[in-house]
Structure formats: C-alpha cells, structure tokens
Simulated assay, not measured.
Amino acid sequence: MAITVERSFRVGTPASTVVAYLEDFAHTEEWDPGTVRCRRTDAGPVAVGARWQNTSRFRGRETTLDYRLVTREPDRLVFQGSNRSVSATDDMAIRPHGDGTLVTYRATLTFKGVLRLAEPLLRGAFDDLADAVEARLPAVLGALPPTPAA
C-alpha cells in the first residue's frame, strides 16, 4: 500500500526550460514547501544516477531521504528516494501544450515497517502538501528565463 498524490498544471514556459530546471532536484528548495534543504551529493552533469540528499519537514518532524535520478527523458523525470522508514518516487511528466507546458507531478510514498499502519492517517496531510506544491511550482516555473537552444 502507498500514498500517491498527483497534480497537473499548465505554465507559459517552454518544456525544455522546465525540464532543464526540474532535472536538478536541488531546486526542490524553491518549489516544495516541505523541503528544508536539498544538496547534490555527487559531481558532474545531471544524468541518470545523479544523487541528492533531501531534508523535508512534515507534520513538525524532519526526515532526510537519499534521492537519485532514475529516468531522464525529454518529457519525463523520475527521482527515487529512500531512508529506513519510507521510499518515495517523484515522477514528473513535462509536455508541450499550446504555447506553454503541461506539467503532471506525481509523488508516491511507501512507508516501511509499522509506519505502514499510519498511511491512512497521513493521506490528507500529503494531499495538503501536494496542493501547496501546485500553488508554488507554477509561479516558480513561470518566472524562469528561457534556456538557450542547444
């Protein structure tokens, strides 16, 4: 059993700019209200296998997950994170839509051990967090300068 939240929204920013921004998971500090800090833990260009350490605050408690980029495609990014109590997958679909971009953000959390019993009680709080991401992320993406054409 897992908790999955999904939100979709449109921004006026080109898809290539959105992907270039979102592929660096350290940017979660700017658009995810739950993220306290996020830092890259390896070096080099962002590619499949790149790693970050993300510390989030949820319901008054901080937790740190080690994330890695597992899928990097022109229209999709998938990050997987884990620690001893939870596994998380952040799956972002980024598609051109009219003169902008349609972003679909899906977060799935699977609790381990006895914390699995708390999943039904935490669902509403994760929905609230997803609403907060949906309120903040479009503004952040909308303010990005276009990336230069390759």
Rank of each mutant, 00 (worst) to 15 (best):
G49T: 06
A132H: 11
D32N: 15
V36P: 01
V46T: 15
V18W: 13
R72Q: 14
E73F: 01
R61T: 04
R95P: 00
A88N: 06
M1D: 14
T4M: 09
T55V: 13
I3P: 12
R57P: 00
I94N: 01
R61P: 00
L115Q: 11
R72C: 03
E6I: 11
R136G: 12
S8H: 06
R59Q: 11
G142L: 01
R84F: 12
A2E: 13
T35I: 11
G142R: 02
V86I: 14
Y21D: 05
Y21Q: 03
A150T: 10
G124P: 12
T63Q: 13
V140Y: 09
G44T: 11
Q80L: 13
V19G: 04
T89F: 03
F9M: 04
P138H: 11
L137C: 11
V36D: 07
R95G: 02
S85M: 12
R57V: 05
R7M: 04
S82E: 15
L77R: 11
D127P: 02
G49I: 11
A143H: 06
G81T: 08
S85E: 10
V114N: 08
R84D: 12
V48Q: 07
V5L: 10
F111H: 06
T13A: 13
A132T: 07
V133Q: 08
A149P: 01
Y21L: 04
T147R: 01
D127I: 15
V11D: 02
E23F: 01
V18P: 10
H27T: 15
S8Y: 03
R106F: 03
W52F: 11
R61W: 08
K112E: 07
P120M: 03
F9S: 08
V46Q: 15
P33F: 10
R59K: 00
A15W: 00
R37T: 14
A47E: 14
R51Q: 12
R10I: 14
R40D: 03
V5G: 08
A150H: 12
N54P: 00
G98Q: 10
